[in-house]
Write a protein that binds this DNA or RNA. Structure first.
Length: 271
DNA sequence: ATGCGGACCTGTTAGC
DNA sequence: TGCTAACAGGTCCGCA
C-alpha cells in the first residue's frame, strides 16, 4: 500500500507524537524483515531523543542525537501511534516506546519493509545515497529525465519507477501519470522528447500532490486507534481498469505486463 | 553500463 | 465449498 503519498501522510501523522520525545524502550518481536533488525538495537535507541522526522523517497527517517532510525514500509507495512496497554496484533514486529507513553508500532505482514539503526548521516547510508531526485522538489525536471534517459531502451514506465532516476513513483502512479501525459508505458525511455518529459514531470507532481491530499483525508486516523491502511479515495483513471472505458475517449483500457509489473493504459490516448 | 530475472514474505482472490 | 495458483501498491542483488 505505501506509495510516496502514504509515506508522506504517515510522516506527517506520526511527527507530532514523536518529535522531541525520548525513546524509553524498543521492542523487537520479529527480527527478520527485508534486512534483519540488528541485535542490540534497544540499547542503541534507549534514551535518545527524536529530533526530526523526515522522508527520503519512501524511507522514513527518525533523526536521533546519535544516528537515525530508517523505516521502510515495503509493500504492506504501516505505522501507527498506540499505547502500551494495547496488545500487539499479528505482524506487529517492532515498537518504539516514547516518554509521552505513546508507542510507535510497526506492522508489516509481508515483511518487505525495514527498520534499521544507522550511525552518522542517514542520507549517506548505502540504501539512500544513490537515490535519485525527489519528485516534489525543483531538481525533478524535464531536463533531468531527458538527460538521464538518452540511449536508454527500457520502457518509460520502468524508467520513471527507477529510484536512481526519481524516487517515490510506484506502480499505480506510474500508470496514472503516463496516461495523464498521453505516453505509452512501453515506449523506450530514450525515444521520448524533452517536451513530453516536461508534461510527464508536471503530471507526476500534480498526481502525487493530489494523492497526498487524498491520503491525508482517507488516512486521517491512520496513526490513531483505527490504523486501517485505507486505500486512496482518488479515482484512478487507468489502474485496475482493464476492459473498462477510457475516461477521455471511451476506448477499452488495456492491461499489459511490463517489466514484470501490471501496467494499464489507453491504446488510443497513449502513444 | 544496462536491463532483466529472481529473491525476500504473507494474505487475498480468481479459477478450476 | 475447497483446493491451488496467481497476484499484490517495493527494492535490492547478481548475472548476462
Amino acid at each position: 500500500m505505501p506509495e510516496l503519498p502514504e509515506v508522506e501522510t504517515t510522516r506527517k501523522g506520526i511527527e507530532p507524537y514523536c518529535l522531541g520525545q525520548v525513546i524509553r524502550d524498543a521492542v523487537v518481536r520479529k527480527r527478520q524483515l527485508r534486512l534483519p533488525i540488528t541485535r542490540g538495537i534497544q540499547d542503541k535507541l534507549k534514551g535518545q531523543c527524536i529530533q526530526k522526522v523526515s522522508r527520503r523517497g519512501k524511507y522514513l527517517l527518525l533523526h536521533l542525537e546519535r544516528g537515525a532510525l530508517l523505516i521502510h514500509l515495503g509493500m504492506s507495512g504501516s505505522l501507527r501511534i498506540t499505547t502500551p496497554a494495547v496488545a500487539p496484533a499479528k505482524h506487529d514486529h517492532f515498537d518504539l516506546v516514547l516518554a509521552n507513553r505513546k508507542v510507535l508500532r510497526y506492522h508489516d505482514p509481508r515483511r518487505f519493509g525495514l527498520v534499521l539503526y544507522t550511525l552518522g548521516d542517514p542520507l549517506e547510508h548505502r540504501l539512500l545515497c544513490h537515490l535519485g531526485c525527489e519528485p516534489l522538489t525543483a531538481d525533478f525536471s524535464a531536463d533531468h529525465l531527458y538527460r538521464a534517459s538518452r540511449s536508454r531502451k527500457l520502457a518509460v514506465k520502468n524508467f520513471i519507477m527507477d529510484s536512481k532516476v526519481v524516487v517515490g513513483v510506484g506502480n499505480i502512479y506510474a500508470s496514472e501519470a503516463l496516461f495523464a501525459a498521453g505516453i505509452h508505458p512501453a515506449r523506450p525511455a530514450g525515444d521520448i522528447s524533452k517536451a513530453r518529459y516536461a508534461t510527464l514531470v508536471k503530471v507526476i507532481r500534480k498526481i502525487l500532490r493530489q494523492a497526498i491530499r487524498c491520503g491525508g483525508t482517507t488516512l486521517r486516523d491512520f496513526v490513531n486507534e483505527d490504523g486501517k491502511p485505507g486505500y486512496f479515495a482518488q479515482r484512478l483513471a487507468v489502474y485496475h481498469r482493464q476492459s473498462q472505458a477510457c475516461t477521455k475517449c471511451g476506448t477499452l483500457i488495456c492491461k499489459q505486463v511490463i517489466g514484470q509489473r501490471a501496467s494499464f493504459y489507453c491504446p488510443r490516448c497513449q502513444s
